[in-house]
């Protein structure tokens, strides 16, 4: 043994319920599934060998017969573990190659396949068909313009994401040549952990009534992105203040009316409303003066 291996220090169980393993959102979902709380879970076993009835939104400004939006019906053979994305892919590959939607990773990582499924924003690849009532109604995300079929224009969403300067800013970053690490404390890492999980799917923004009525509202995802950096101890106080100044503008955190719709739809279980509320309090604290 040439290298000295240090015994790892014993660790306290972290506060975060997800780390403690008391009940993570995933466990909650599993529990709900087992106890039959999810929509129509009884039919789970009965779908074997049957077909799934999809109603898919269709629209294409460039095709004569599709300029009027309509719903098309597809009957797709069910397979164990089939997701909504699997189902629409089958429909596209076998029935209608013009059926258009975005997808890439198929494992809830790339964020390209958020749809409006049975009245709720969900990731196609993360939504099991057995959990849904039939017919499964699949629409493009509401509150975004439809380009074609299930494809919506995401430009505005991306603009809002970029508006909060979503990159690390610190003058004290060591020069790359020094090969120094810029360490973050484990506690601070835990603090921003959930906020760092965003996959830019846009489900939250689409679910938000306020964002629907106020096009300039930054929206939950962008505010959450700002939270990730504002709460990072390694950035200086001055930069945190700069970030709060962006967030407390007219169309920033104060537009949030705590409807929790974003938190409910986020496929990565980010506590968006909680983060927005915390930033509201930070913004107030910064402006409070007792003199």
């Amino acid at each position: 043994m040439s290298t000295q291996q240090q015994e790892p220090e014993t660790q306290e169980a972290p506060e975060d319920p997800e780390m403690k393993g008391t009940q993570s959102p995933q466990e909650r979902r599993l529990e709900e599934k087992e106890s039959g709380l999810t929509e129509d879970a009884d039919s789970a076993g009965d779908l074997e060998g049957e077909t799934v009835h999809l109603k898919v939104f269709r629209y294409d400004p460039e095709v004569e017969g599709k300029q009027e939006p309509r719903f098309d019906d597809f009957h797709v053979p069910f397979e164990k573990g089939m997701t909504v994305l699997d189902a629409v892919m089958y429909a596209r590959d076998e029935y209608d190659s013009s059926l258009t939607f975005r997808h890439s990773c198929r494992q809830a990582v790339c964020g390209s396949d958020a749809f409006f499924v049975n009245g709720k924003q969900r990731l196609g690849c993360k939504t099991q068909i057995v959990e849904l009532e039939q017919p499964v109604r699949i629409e493009p995300l509401p509150h975004q313009e439809v380009v074609k079929d299930l494809v919506v224009d995401m430009d505005h969403f991306y603009d809002q994401m970029h508006a909060v300067e979503p990159y690390f800013q610190d003058e004290e970053t060591p020069a790359a040549a020094d090969l120094e690490e810029q360490r973050q404390s484990p506690e601070n890492r835990e603090k921003i952990k959930m906020s760092s999980r965003c996959i830019w799917c846009g489900a939250c923004m689409s679910s938000c009534n306020i964002a629907a009525g106020d096009n300039e509202y930054l929206g939950p995802a962008a505010i959450n992105k700002a939270y990730k950096f504002a709460m990072d101890d390694r950035e200086s106080e001055a930069i945190k203040e700069h970030r709060l100044r962006i967030l407390e503008q007219e169309h920033g955190v104060w537009r949030c009316q705590t409807q929790f719709s974003c938190t409910e739809v986020c496929p990565k279980d980010i506590p968006l409303t909680e983060h927005i509320q915390e930033l509201k309090r930070e913004a107030v604290k910064k402006n409070l003066k007792f003199w």
Binding site: P61, G119, K120, V146, N209, T258, Q259, F260, S261
Partner: peptide, 27 residues
């Protein structure tokens, strides 16, 4: 992209059946 389809406000309000608890609380 030559054209896109805006589903407009009517459809938004038509979604009231899909509102969640927090949305009703706000209204």
């Amino acid at each position: 992209m030559s054209q896109s389809y805006n589903r407009g406000l009517i459809e938004d309000f038509g979604r009231w059946k899909e509102f969640s608890a927090g949305m009703w609380a706000w209204i």
